[in-house]
Design a protein around this nucleic acid. Structure first.
Lengths: 209, 209
DNA sequence: TAGTTTCTTGACCGGATGGTCAATTTTACT
DNA sequence: AGTAAAATTGACCATCCGGTCAAGAAACTA
């Protein structure tokens, strides 16, 4: 309805449209399968115009990747909001489920990037993610030493959280197919979130209320 | 060593080499990114020869998909080997972890297929997988009614098992990067398998030994 | 209004890709 | 050995893709 918003410079409007279209297309077809002309057409502009804003397909892809990365960083913070394992992990799991709900396309692009050997984000894996993981492993080990949780392998726990929460984004289509062909309702998604949280927390020995 | 095996018809040897190469390339580059000439070169034959055995890239891809499907079916059977939830689920989780270890490439291709909207396997999702899931959900519901496990959402439990076990195949590269750049040793993988099994079984209220 | 910058776009290009084909060689069978 | 079937392969082709370009249109600035 807000059609009168012609004030914005074309750059702002076009870059936004391109990024939205690119995220869609990259997640649906992968980097190699995505074509700049399809992205442009979804953004409602000619291909040559897309290349005016993003010179190469790779530059566009990296812009998308860095956006996803910043979302990931944001979720990572929720881990540290509290020192109680039930709170910290519960918050983290819920934050990751929320991200899978709100940004499934980004999660899919991320997953494909890893599966293809992480050509663009290898550096991130070896630095930021490695450091973040190592420090959270220490926190979990401390919880174990303090008998707050069972003596489980911390890495396996983190992987389980990542895998389970991201599954709701990456395998959205399969989950929909097993749900009568339509996406999970907000209600069902909330229920899934609580189930996941409960199983994991109870699974590592946290007494549930 | 067994060099004297010239008896085999070229067809057998070449189809095998092509399928192995194709599984590699499809998992690394995706369907769109894979090129028939790269697959042929990895199989050690000219591209034209590949097209003699598999007329189109899509035909080759579908052959690969159906192979992966049969592996999946095999694992699915382990669910029913026993009626005790600890046994049945434990067996199933371990079988799926074993598959992720032995056939990571197939798992990646499967995951990409789902992420791209399952263009080739939609029918399977709507029939075989849907039926299988529905009947296992009933089994889990019975376990709940018999108070053998907690009253969790059965679908969420299945998704958690799929997600976690397949993560070790699909995100192999990331796990390796977080393990000093090398793949998990057999020992570590075994440890991860036990951790995963323990957390899930305990998480749904099964008393661990 | 005049001038400058930003934006738009159809046409085009080199390279790569999936797939074909016909000529030749190898294998299988009697 | 001789013949028919299966297999091999270099050369080739139509199509599509990422990216360029130049000429012009629109948007800002003073």
């Amino acid at each position: 309805m807000n059609v009168m918003q012609k004030k914005s410079k074309p750059r702002v409007k076009n870059e936004e449209a391109i990024l939205i279209a690119a995220e869609e297309v990259f997640s649906e077809l992968g980097f190699a399968g995505a074509t700049t002309s399809l992205i442009a057409s979804r953004a409602g502009i000619p291909k040559a115009n897309l290349h005016y804003y993003y010179p190469t397909k790779e530059a566009l892809y990296q812009t998308i990747i860095s956006r996803i990365f910043s979302i990931w960083l944001h979720a990572a913070e929720t881990f540290d909001d509290c020192d109680d394992p039930a709170d910290a992990l519960g918050r983290y799991i819920r934050a990751k489920m929320e991200i899978s709900r709100m940004h499934p396309l980004g999660s899919k692009i991320w997953a494909q990037e890893i599966m293809h050997g992480a050509p663009q984000i290898q550096g991130f894996l070896e630095t930021t993610l490695n450091d973040w993981t190592a420090s959270r492993v220490k926190i979990i080990e401390r919880w174990i030493a303090e008998r707050k949780i069972d003596a489980i392998d911390p890495q396996s726990l983190l992987y389980m959280i990542w895998a389970t929460t991201q599954h709701y984004a990456d395998f959205e289509h399969q989950i929909g197919a097993l749900n009568g062909g339509k996406a999970l309702s907000d209600e069902k998604y909330k229920h899934a979130t609580e189930t996941v949280t409960q199983i994991i927390l109870k699974g590592i020995g946290i007494k549930m209320v």
